[in-house]
Write a protein that binds this DNA or RNA. Sequence first.
RNA 1: UGCCCGAUGGUGUAAUGGUAGCACAAGCGACUCUGACUCGCUUUGUCUAGGUUCGAGUCCUAGUCGGGCAGCCA
Length: 596
Amino acid sequence: MSVDPSSPAPAPSDFIRDIVAADVAAGKYAKIVTRFPPEPNGYLHIGHAKSICLNFGIAREQNGQCNLRFDDTNPVKEDVEYVDSIVRDVRWLIAGWADSCLGFKPRGGKPIPVTSNGQPDSYLGPVSPDSPDAEPFFASDYFEALYAYALTLIRNGDAYVCDLSAKETDEYRGAPDQPGRDSPWRGRSVAENLALFEGMRRGDFPDGARSLRAKIDMASPNVWLRDPLLYRIRHVPHHHAGNAWCIYPLYDYAHCLSDYLEGITHSICTLEFVDHRPLYDWILEKLRLPRALPHQYEFAKLVPGYTLVSKRKLLHLVTQGIVSGWDDPRMPTLSGLRRRGVPASALRRFVTGVGVTKYDSVTDIALFEHAVRDELNGSSERRLAVLRPIKLVLTNLAPGEIVSCEATNNPQSDTPTTRPVDLTREVYIESDDFAEVPPPKYFRLKPGGEVRLKYACIIKLDEIVKDASGAITELRCTADLTTRSGQPNADRKVKGTIHWVSATTCIDAEVRLYDRLFSVAEPAREEDFLRVINPKSLETVTAKLERSLAGLAGGVCHQFERLGYFTTDPVASRPDRLVFNRTITLKDAWTAPGGK
RNA sequence: UGCCCGAUGGUGUAAUGGUAGCACAAGCGACUCUGACUCGCUUUGUCUAGGUUCGAGUCCUAGUCGGGCAGCCA
């Protein structure tokens, strides 16, 4: 059954949603605002889908908003190619589900001066993502505001310009079990710090010559509180901010303030940022900001089995040409999954189904596969296709004779429709569906055995024809036309039913059979993940399809009966030259004794 | 050997001091013109040791195991 949108699954519950609900009950915020803050340095993957669904899901359940914001504070690693792909992927994932919660801002918009609780303040409000002048939020649009906040920290004696080199800074930081030492520049006067920081902005100093640091505690057991860097000098242009800056803020400084400027209430990130939370809070508190402060909460990221969720490693697969690109259908990227034919709804169902906890785990890929199959089972029309054909001759049919049979388009539908399929003297069946020496409990075609051709009739194998080398060239069978639907023996039972296509009216198509990219459950644990790549992750065959598929425009998923779900490849397929991607196989409970 | 986070069947999770439940996976069976779907049944679990309590998966203490943190990355 297809999913009824009027009766959605019950809203999920988890420790973060509990916190949000408590804050709502306490009237802490006027409106719940979350954010999804990717850095545009790679494509979004299945792990990000969890974060997107969590953040947008909460916004959706609370009648709130979720801002798409680029955390673009490191121009050397970022690119507009990534911002474009990320916008596309996010919109695809939430389409028809949380579009109305998506927070964008006016094009070119930057934080504006406002008065909050009688105090001067800065704020950047949202605009409908569908308005013509809307664009996502960018941390780089806050550089001016961030600079002003930095000046305040300096004036208050909470930040200083440090002249230590990167290497020296490391040495002064100490070790986790060893306290750090104060920088010799820690005691500079406010006036000197101000002058130097202004010089940094002006471009007076080369990369790495100085940095702005928070003045916290070099002996803190939390290394992130040992006078962390706030700004570094980088004389490079920025993909969004242009050439306006040669100093760039670091994540910890930019993130909390970006959240504040946008009025974020719940800043949800992954576990590796737990140690940063005191710094997040420290910066906001030191600035004595007039509005309610955002708070950070952390959850365990999603790591599905047999895949990699590391932008760095994924980038490596792309640049080494191990896959065809970020959108290769074997990639765990959202664009790869989309191209493969995975519906956004299945992805959403999977990532919300795994829940939200603080426990690091590897999620069984079967959970994902189940969600995909379940979603596609209800929505996909059935078609007949033979991937690895073997010719079968129905000796009692005349050459040129076509027996039209009625095939059901979708048995899961409440009102199933049908289409005609052609039964002819020569047909193709799957080579897997014939065994000259069948294993025990083999239901398919075997010497002297009977099987039903789905939607057609029962056939009996009479003769196996081989060539001089002993290879099978054709199977000669007798068709019992009285077992066709509507005929007197239609109800006759045989154990096996197989799929087939007419050899005379079928069409050819390229079909790409994808399998998992890695051969081990946790490729991330390997010393060299390239050594555990599944050599059979892609096999391409020329398949025989029933003629009703001819001219298929694309974008639609079909179930090829008994095989799996297949979607035309959006890049390679044309109506006159079809190319299919196998999205996923059908579940297969049959295993020949001894494996198969 | 500093700080932080965590631990419930094979996997992911629920139980908010009161009957350890759900989904997936696995196994068996029913149904079947898809060895799919659907349906029924079954196997498997609270890291350890103490403590608090009438009662602990839940609270406390200690331990064990796993993960994270020493980028001018995010």
